[in-house]
Structure formats: C-alpha cells, structure tokens
Amino acid sequence: MKRMKKILALLLASVMVLGLAACGGDNTPAEDTDAGTKEPATTTETSANDIPDSMTSEDGKYELAFVTDVGQLKDKSFNEGTWNGVKLYASKNDMSYKYYQPANGDQATDDDRYEAMKAAVDGGATVVVCAGFLQEAALKQAAIDYPDTKFIFVDGYPINGDDNQPLANVAGIAFKEEQSGYFAGYAAVMEGYTKLGFSGGGGGTNPACCRYGYGFVQGANAAAAEKDVQVEMNYSWEYGSSFSASPELQTMANGWYQSGTEVIFACGGSMFQSITAAASANDGAVIGVDVDQSTQSDTVVTSAMKELSDAVEWSLAKVYDDTFSEIGGVATSLGVEEDAVGLPTDSWSLTNYTVEQYEEMYQKVKDGTLAVDADYNNLEQEYSNLTLKIS
C-alpha cells in the first residue's frame, strides 16, 4: 500500500448522495456543445485544512457538534484528527458544525464536559461527537437527558444507562491500536534501532495509549527475534497525564536520548512537541501517533496511525442513512480488517525497512496468520529479545 486505504470507503460513498453539491456546486459535467474541444470535467478532493474551524450558520443552530478531549483542538493528533472528520462530513453534506471545549482545560471535570455537551444540544446539535475515554461519565448523563440526540464516543465503548442496559443513542468507536503499535515497533527495529523509548499519555489509564504501547513492545520484540539481536526500551507514563507538552517531559526525553535512546514513540497528543524538541536537540528520532505527523517535525521517521477522520465520517453517515442502530449501544473496534490502522508508507523516512516488507506484515495480520495481543495487562512479562525498563 502506497497509502493507507480509506476506512470503509464504499460505505461512505453510498451516503455521499446527501451532499453531492455541498462543496462548491454541481459536479455533473456540462453538456458538450463542442465535441472534442472541451477538457474532461475534474473534481478536487476537499482537505480538512481548507475547511475553517469556525463557521456561522444562518439560523444560529449547529447540527454537528464536537466536544474535545483534553489538550488543544489543533493538536496535530487525536483531537484534530477527530475534528477533521466532523468538518469533512459537514462540508460534503452542507451542514453546520461547531466545536465545544470543556471549561478548565486540562483540569476539566465531568461537570465541565457535561456542560459542553449540553451547550451543543441546546445549540441545535443532532449529533455530538465526543473524543476520549474521559468523556464517559458526562456522556452517560447527557445521553440519558437527551435521548433524541445521537452521541459518537471516539476511543469509546458502549455505556450502560441507569437500568444497566446499553444506551442506544451512544456509539462507541474504538480502534485496534495494538496492531498499529506493533507495526511501528517492528519497523523501528527492522530499521536498525536497538534502543527505543515509549512515552505515553493518560498516566497509564488510557486504553488506547495502553494498546499502542503494548503493541509497540510486541512488534519490537518480534523484529529483534527475527534479526537475532537484543533491544532495550524505556517505557514511561510520567508527565503524560494531561497529554500536554511540558518542560518536565522534555527533560525526561532529553535524558533518554543522551543515555543512548535512538527513537521514542510519542504517544499522546501535544506531548509530541516536547519529544520532538528533545529529539532535535540530540539528533534523535520520533514515532508519531494517531495521524501522520511527519509534516510537523523532520525528526519523525513514521507514525502509528488510526483513521480517525474516516471513522468519524463513517459513523456520522450512519446517523443520516438510518443505520445508526448498527453501532448504537454496541462495541465497534476498527483495525486492519477495515484498513483503519497502520503506517503512512508514502511519507515515512525509513530506509532499511521496505514498503514491501510492511505490506507483507500487514497482510499477515489481516488474514490472521499473525495475531497481536490486545490485553495490555500482559505488558510486564518476559520477552525473548527485549528488555523493558518501566518507569
């Protein structure tokens, strides 16, 4: 794959009839009155970056809403990737949209998150997209209070109501990050790195980051075994609880690089900024997370990705084609089977590990020949070719 496939592209195409004229006019070729002289009609794919983050609706109502996770909206990672899906679906279907950031930033409470969801519903939202597992408690209350509103819980899972039954108006959309992490760890060691680092967000309580990290360890160990080498990995949740950049995190990463670490998997939103700053100062390498972060720093050799934007578009489409019941109240987990996780082969700077080798590995996971363990409670085990240093 020269580029990761778009998640469930055929399903998305089936609902695009809702907005064929939404992005600047009719795409139907004009009648040919001068056969043989006209150039074929062309269309240009809209980029999320071309869509403004703020818009003003004519009636003051906003149909699609996004409630952010901790960190910045434009974090070049989880929040931004999710928001891009909302904007793209809105743009393609001529819908109004708005984002809401809970009060108190990184110190936001469940009440702060609930108030953001309430503001979205009061503002006219038919669908509210909520990013991050920290939304659970507020989302449960909002879904109970507003049963006619659909909620999409990204990096989430089914939420039970007071009757202990799943709330049918909440769709929990998760990813198999362990697969993407595995690909990144395997690629790093095949590239030639033997001293690795993992710096994770959420303080070790974020399931998505935990899956990324555990997959990264498994992939690195597998590649080391294949090459018959021993590798070391620093593995830490310190300074990542808020997913934010900080001097303390940069100092830790700087110490790792100075002690011999060659590449660090920066797994946590704006934490990326601290890791890349330390890498730049020490001629180190970085692996990005969630989206392709290669454009953000020349220290990035690849990124462990999940197709956040496409998954959000797919989920929103189910609201409007009346198939939301397929994902509401049930667990949805997207992985290689849906081409929803992987590495960006068209932008990575790996030179020893080839795209062909990656594609072969990807196919093994896809056809079940290779299984990646998702139970990160198994992290602290003995590995054949990897020494894990947890802090």
Rank of each mutant, 00 (worst) to 15 (best):
residue 2 K to R: 14
residue 7 I to A: 06
residue 7 I to E: 06
residue 8 L to D: 02
residue 9 A to H: 08
residue 12 L to A: 09
residue 18 L to C: 02
residue 18 L to K: 00
residue 21 A to D: 15
residue 28 T to D: 05
residue 41 A to H: 12
residue 43 T to D: 00
residue 44 T to D: 10
residue 56 T to C: 00
residue 58 E to S: 13
residue 61 K to E: 14
residue 67 V to M: 07
residue 72 Q to V: 02
residue 76 K to M: 05
residue 77 S to L: 02
residue 79 N to I: 09
residue 84 N to Q: 11
residue 87 K to R: 06
residue 88 L to G: 00
residue 92 K to Y: 15
residue 92 K to R: 14
residue 92 K to W: 15
residue 92 K to D: 12
residue 93 N to I: 02
residue 94 D to M: 07
residue 94 D to Q: 14
residue 95 M to G: 06
residue 95 M to L: 14
residue 97 Y to I: 08
residue 101 Q to V: 15
residue 105 G to N: 13
residue 107 Q to Y: 15
residue 108 A to N: 12
residue 110 D to V: 12
residue 117 M to G: 06
residue 118 K to M: 06
residue 120 A to E: 09
residue 121 V to Y: 11
residue 127 V to K: 01
residue 127 V to R: 09
residue 132 G to R: 03
residue 135 Q to L: 04
residue 136 E to F: 10
residue 136 E to G: 05
residue 137 A to R: 09
residue 138 A to D: 08
residue 143 A to I: 04
residue 146 Y to N: 12
residue 151 F to M: 05
residue 153 F to V: 03
residue 158 P to W: 15
residue 160 N to S: 11
residue 162 D to K: 14
residue 170 V to M: 08
residue 171 A to F: 08
residue 172 G to D: 04
residue 172 G to V: 04
residue 178 E to T: 08
residue 178 E to R: 10
residue 185 G to C: 04
residue 187 A to M: 06
residue 191 E to F: 02
residue 191 E to Y: 00
residue 192 G to D: 01
residue 193 Y to K: 10
residue 195 K to Q: 14
residue 200 G to E: 01
residue 200 G to N: 11
residue 201 G to A: 07
residue 204 G to N: 12
residue 213 G to S: 04
residue 215 G to D: 05
residue 217 V to L: 14
residue 217 V to H: 09
residue 218 Q to H: 14
residue 219 G to D: 03
residue 221 N to K: 12
residue 231 V to D: 06
residue 231 V to G: 01
residue 233 M to R: 05
residue 236 S to Y: 08
residue 237 W to S: 05
residue 239 Y to A: 01
residue 240 G to M: 01
residue 247 P to V: 05
residue 248 E to S: 07
residue 249 L to M: 10
residue 249 L to K: 07
residue 250 Q to S: 02
residue 251 T to K: 00
residue 251 T to S: 11
residue 251 T to E: 12
residue 254 N to L: 07
residue 255 G to T: 05
residue 256 W to D: 00
residue 260 G to R: 11
residue 261 T to D: 07
residue 265 F to G: 03
residue 266 A to V: 01
residue 270 S to L: 04
residue 275 I to K: 04
residue 275 I to G: 00
residue 279 A to M: 03
residue 280 S to T: 13
residue 280 S to P: 03
residue 283 D to F: 11
residue 285 A to E: 03
residue 285 A to M: 07
residue 285 A to W: 07
residue 289 V to E: 00
residue 291 V to S: 05
residue 291 V to P: 07
residue 294 S to H: 13
residue 294 S to K: 11
residue 295 T to I: 00
residue 302 T to V: 05
residue 305 M to Q: 13
residue 306 K to T: 06
residue 310 D to C: 00
residue 313 E to S: 08
residue 316 L to Q: 07
residue 318 K to N: 07
residue 320 Y to T: 06
residue 324 F to G: 01
residue 326 E to D: 15
residue 327 I to C: 06
residue 331 A to L: 12
residue 333 S to N: 13
residue 334 L to I: 06
residue 334 L to C: 05
residue 335 G to V: 02
residue 341 V to Y: 13
residue 351 T to R: 12
residue 352 N to W: 10
residue 359 E to P: 03
residue 360 E to V: 08
residue 361 M to V: 14
residue 362 Y to H: 14
residue 369 T to R: 13
residue 369 T to S: 15
residue 370 L to A: 09
residue 380 E to S: 09
residue 380 E to C: 03
residue 381 Q to M: 14
residue 385 N to E: 09
residue 386 L to K: 01
residue 387 T to Y: 13
residue 389 K to S: 11
residue 390 I to H: 06
residue 391 S to F: 12
